[in-house]
């Protein structure tokens, strides 16, 4: 008897758990005040600024929680297309935004360009892009799939140089980390990344960077679990307050 009751209970619990899994609309869309959670998928290079913007947004809208997923833009696009519950996508390049199918109209909100990052004090004496072609130098670049890698490719094409990297990192922050740890002599990262890590790395600007300026598009997603929150967050990023945070971090206004 007890066994049968237990079995019934277990089936019930399993059923409940499964149905709970299927019905994952934790942030129910509301007509009026904002609430719930806003899932923002943002390019790795936006880590610092968007974390700040998220805090400001939460302060302006009590009861809303912003949750970030920072990674290489190509990985994020892939995750969204596979059904990850994203409300907002901010990509470091239009190409990766285009890869996402179900989205609202993207708006370019900032621009960014590449800079050479070297460990503090530049121990290897890096002077410019030509150092990236020297076999003895330890060099990190972004993989071509991610925007910073695509931009790097354009830069080297413009300079007619063939880089000899030691590692192709999966996002810009990974490349930056290798510099700040001193594991590589130089890497190509964004100007904003150099600024964000200015205690540990020095930046060297170079003229060819202007050949590969990245436009950063942001868009709400049509399958967003929290459409109201998504729209509010995008509006916040585009607002004067949002622009101020971004430009202070070294991004250029579009």
């Amino acid at each position: 008897m007890i066994r049968r009751t237990l079995a019934a209970a277990l089936i019930l619990v399993t059923g409940l758990a499964l149905s709970a899994c299927g019905d994952d609309s934790s942030a129910a869309p509301s007509s009026g005040a904002l609430n719930g959670q806003v899932n923002v998928f943002a390019a790795a290079s936006l880590t610092g600024t968007f974390t700040q913007l998220g805090k400001d947004f939460e302060a302006a809208h009590p009861g809303v929680k912003v949750v970030f997923n920072f990674a290489g833009s190509s990985a994020l696009a892939q995750q969204i297309n596979q059904g990850a519950p994203a409300d907002v996508f901010a990509s470091a390049a239009p190409k990766n935004m285009d890869q996402v199918t179900d989205k609202g109209t993207p708006t370019t909100f900032v621009r960014n360009k590449l800079e050479i990052a070297v460990p503090k004090g530049n121990p290897a004496g890096i002077t410019g892009l030509t150092d990236f072609t020297v076999e003895d130098r330890k060099i990190a670049l972004c993989a071509e799939q991610v925007p910073c890698g695509a931009a790097a490719k354009k830069v080297f094409e413009a300079a007619k140089l063939t880089p000899r990297p030691d590692s192709l990192e999966q996002d810009v922050k990974a490349a930056l980390t290798k510099v700040s740890l001193g594991e590589v002599d130089a890497a190509l990262v964004y100007r904003t990344d150099v600024l964000a890590a200015k205690d540990k790395v020095d930046g060297i600007a170079f003229p060819e960077a202007d050949q590969a300026v990245n436009d950063y598009p942001i868009a709400t997603l049509t399958k967003a679990p929290n459409p109201a929150g998504a729209k509010a967050f995008v509006d916040f990023v585009l607002s004067a307050q949002g622009t101020k945070v971004l430009t202070e971090a070294g991004f250029a206004a579009p």
Binding site: A140, A143, D166, L168, E169, K178
Partner: peptide
């Protein structure tokens, strides 16, 4: 630790 370079890592 080893990074990512085709043919090497």
């Amino acid at each position: 630790f080893a990074g990512n370079l085709p043919g090497r890592t």
